[in-house]
């Protein structure tokens, strides 16, 4: 079963002359363990796709299934519970709460979901440790570097039993080496069985994905072929 499935999803904003079709008939399935990158110019519908996949907005028409469950069949409360438990978000500007330490930021989604403070903290420390951030657990966001802040944001997005990781330009304004570190983390998270969708206009970041889909004017116009393996690349190069 796909972790995320969009079937013929269309999103329209506004009405009449001011109507904007942000997404047109988008069909996309992401399997557990798969990382998909969505590329396209500004205004192509990338971010809309992500907010609809994350149930932050609803589609004008078409179906969104998460773990096989049609989102439209869920009540608002059930959708909210699914967002807290199953879906992790990473935003461009990190969105960490300045008044909470790194560990508290990471524990927050679990606590909001009713997990005890102690259990949530334990889970948060485990994730921070996995991302080599143990030493920074008690620091506030302002005391962390940009790269560390983004790693904390990723830790918050993957803590608990998340099945879907959604990231909008996750390397933000980080330099290329730190941006790469973020993508390595996203990748290793997906290898643990989480389905990932990364929206970006940066081809270097997108190239960490198993599959890259291209959006243009709200339509999915193309996608990359499955990997041929690095051997072919080196041989082609040697033959040049």
């Amino acid at each position: 079963m796909s972790a995320l499935e969009l079937i013929g999803v269309t999103k329209v904003y506004g009405r009449g002359a001011g109507e904007v079709q942000a997404l047109r008939e988008v069909t996309l399935a992401v399997e557990p363990g798969e990382l998909v990158a969505v590329m396209g110019p500004s205004g192509s519908g990338k971010s809309t796709l992500l907010t609809i996949a994350g149930t932050l907005e609803s589609a004008s028409s078409g179906d969104v299934l998460i773990g096989g469950m049609p989102v439209s069949k869920l009540s608002r409360n059930q959708q909210a519970a699914m967002r807290r438990r199953a879906i992790g978000y990473v935003f461009q500007d990190f969105n960490l709460l300045a008044g909470l330490t790194a560990a508290e930021n990471v524990a927050l989604p679990l606590e909001l979901d009713g997990v005890s403070t102690r259990t949530a903290r334990k889970a948060a420390l485990e994730v921070l440790d996995r991302l080599s951030l143990s030493a920074r657990a008690e620091h506030f966001p302002d005391d962390l570097s940009g790269g560390e802040r983004q790693r904390v944001a990723i830790a918050r997005a993957v803590v608990g039993e998340r099945r879907l990781l959604l990231a909008d330009e996750p390397s933000g304004a980080l330099d290329s080496v730190n941006g790469e570190a973020v993508m390595r983390l996203v990748r290793s998270t997906c290898q643990g069985g989480v389905a990932g969708v990364v929206v970006t206009h940066d081809a270097q970041l997108a190239s960490w994905a198993d599959r890259v889909v291209f959006l243009r004017d709200g339509r999915m116009v193309d996608q990359t072929a499955p990997p041929a393996g690095p051997e072919s690349l080196l041989q082609a190069d040697a033959a040049r």
Binding site: A203, Q204, S207, T224, A225, P227, A228, L233
Partner: peptide, 13 residues
């Protein structure tokens, strides 16, 4: 698409 596919291959390396 072709260039991004090549980039994916290099990234795997």
């Amino acid at each position: 698409r072709r260039v991004v596919e090549l980039m994916q291959e290099w990234t795997r390396v």
